[in-house]
């Protein structure tokens, strides 16, 4: 009896461990377009995604900081990713979204051109960032390969780091 029980428990444990390793193997990302390229960030670093709302300009900041906006009572900075990546600015369209990202206590909204989809990507499909960019400076965490396209995965904490 106790042997049987032990076996059952062992089996369950194995199943659980198996599950965990399976989860570990897959990264869940949210993909979005800025300019011509598709980028992605881990789904857990997203607080929410909202439609564009008005924001207030903050003086003495780089041009990619559009200002601050009110997210249910919190004042949150808004960063234009196009400008951040050195692309020409573009007017907001129907597909423009603000992605509110957080890393620790840091929160900021990022303007993106449009969302693509939620991506489940096995870890093995993610390659390192191209070597041409220096390790400390890069905002790129890695490059995800999918059957028909490549997705650049960004470091959220790097995006949320003040660099002026």
């Amino acid at each position: 009896m106790s042997n049987q029980l032990q076996q059952v428990i062992n089996k369950q444990n194995n199943a659980l461990i198996g599950d965990e390793s399976k989860i570990d193997d897959v990264v869940q990302l949210v993909g979005f377009i800025v300019g011509e390229e598709e980028f992605a960030i881990p789904i857990l670093s997203i607080q929410e995604i909202i439609k564009p709302i008005s924001c207030t300009r903050v003086p003495q900041t780089p041009t990619y900081i559009l200002g601050v906006f009110n997210l249910r009572g919190s004042v949150i900075p808004l960063i234009d990713l196009r400008a951040r990546f050195g692309l020409t600015p573009q007017k907001h369209t129907d597909e423009t979204r603000f992605i509110v990202m957080k890393s620790g206590d840091d929160v900021a909204g990022f303007v993106i051109d449009r969302l693509t989809e939620a991506i489940r990507m096995p870890k093995k499909d993610i390659g390192p960032a191209p070597e041409t960019v220096s390790e400390a400076e890069t905002m790129i965490d890695g490059v995800g390969k999918q059957s028909d396209r490549i997705v650049t995965i960004l470091k959220v904490h790097k995006l949320l780091e003040r660099n002026f």
């Binding site: 924001c55 003086p59 003495q60 601050v68 004042v75 949150i76 900075p77 929160v107 003040r162």
Partner: peptide, 21 residues
């Protein structure tokens, strides 16, 4: 917030009656 702290001349922000900052 952390990201924009220490902007010269700005002590902070407030939310107005119309929801704007």
């Amino acid at each position: 917030g952390e990201y924009l702290k220490g902007i010269e001349g700005i002590a902070g922000a407030t939310i107005r009656g119309d929801g704007g900052v």
